[in-house]
């Protein structure tokens, strides 16, 4: 495995996974291993993309970090403190829209703040702010079914950001969208990241997406129950499309991903 290099030595570690393992109990009292001894360190403000075929445990890993999985081995630290339960400081964005169809776009963002018991007059300011950031101010009174797939994910993003999480967990959020919408959302996500410097852990099975977005790309393999290789992409993110070295990295990762080990 490539040695992890700290690009910004002054930066603090946001999330760190230490020997995280996950086994599922099966019916015949046997267990099947999904993840074994995963070690990852994510610095504050980094975008880490986790790339892997289906069944490699990448979504399981995200679920463990979010607190959706109860039993796992190892330790997860967020800003040096162990995390145990589900919490709004680790917000998950799902592949399919987890927005509530009985609420408008505005109310969908607001409900997150309601649950966090933010007072009403403050809620309104925050909701307006984040809907504006994702470019949906004009659609704040639309119900979810009136929005396109890309708009839905932008509302989800606004909802996630409005809670000001320490880390954003994204579980293939753009997988169901078509390519042009994807491209504009990549740009928006990167713009947003430049402004907010949020730490992002982004899971995907799309190599282009992983290389385009990540400061580092972690390739996972189902055979190894964990990390196969890690790539540091130190080409500025606005110069990555149609870049020759990026294409080389993509080719290299493609080989890694499909060499059956």
């Amino acid at each position: 495995m490539m040695q992890f290099k700290n690009q910004y030595p002054q930066q603090k570690v946001s999330l760190s996974l230490k020997n995280v393992s996950k086994k599922y109990a099966q019916r015949n009292s046997e267990t099947s291993t999904v993840l074994e001894n995963i070690n990852i360190q994510i610095l504050e403000g980094e975008i880490i993309t986790i790339l892997g075929k289906s069944g490699c445990g990448k979504s399981t890993l995200l679920n463990i970090i979010a607190g959706f999985e109860n039993s796992y081995g190892g330790e997860i630290l967020l800003n040096g403190k162990p995390v145990k339960e589900i919490g709004p400081e680790r917000i998950m964005m799902f592949q399919e829209s987890a927005l509530f169809p009985w609420l408008t776009a505005f109310q969908n963002v607001e409900i997150a703040l309601k649950m966090a018991k933010v007072p009403k007059n403050q809620r309104e300011i925050v909701v307006r702010h984040y809907l504006e950031i994702v470019g949906l101010s004009d659609y704040s009174h639309s119900y979810i079914h009136q929005l396109s797939g890309g708009m839905k994910q932008r509302v989800s993003l606004a909802r996630a950001l409005s809670l000001n999480p320490k880390i954003l967990l994204m579980d293939e959020p753009f997988a169901a969208l078509d390519i042009t919408i994807k491209k504009s959302l990549y740009k928006e996500l990167l713009d947003l990241h430049r402004k907010t410097r949020k730490t992002i852990l982004f899971v995907t099975h799309n190599i282009n997406e992983a290389v385009l977005l990540g400061d580092r790309v972690i390739v996972m393999s189902p055979k190894l129950y964990g990390i196969k290789k890690e790539y540091i992409i130190d080409i500025p993110k606005d110069q990555r499309s149609d870049n020759i070295s990026i294409k080389k990295i993509i080719n290299q990762i493609t080989v890694d991903l499909y060499d059956n080990a």
Binding site: A66, F68, F94, E96, A98, F100, W102, L103, K114, M115
Partner: peptide, 26 residues
């Protein structure tokens, strides 16, 4: 997924009930 998302946002017990379960079941 609604319940997951709501719990992730910090909903517990009564608030989960009031803001998510009841409207979703309506």
């Amino acid at each position: 997924i609604y319940i997951r998302a709501a719990r992730n946002m910090g909903a517990k017990g009564f608030s989960l009930f009031r803001y998510v379960l009841i409207p979703a079941a309506t």
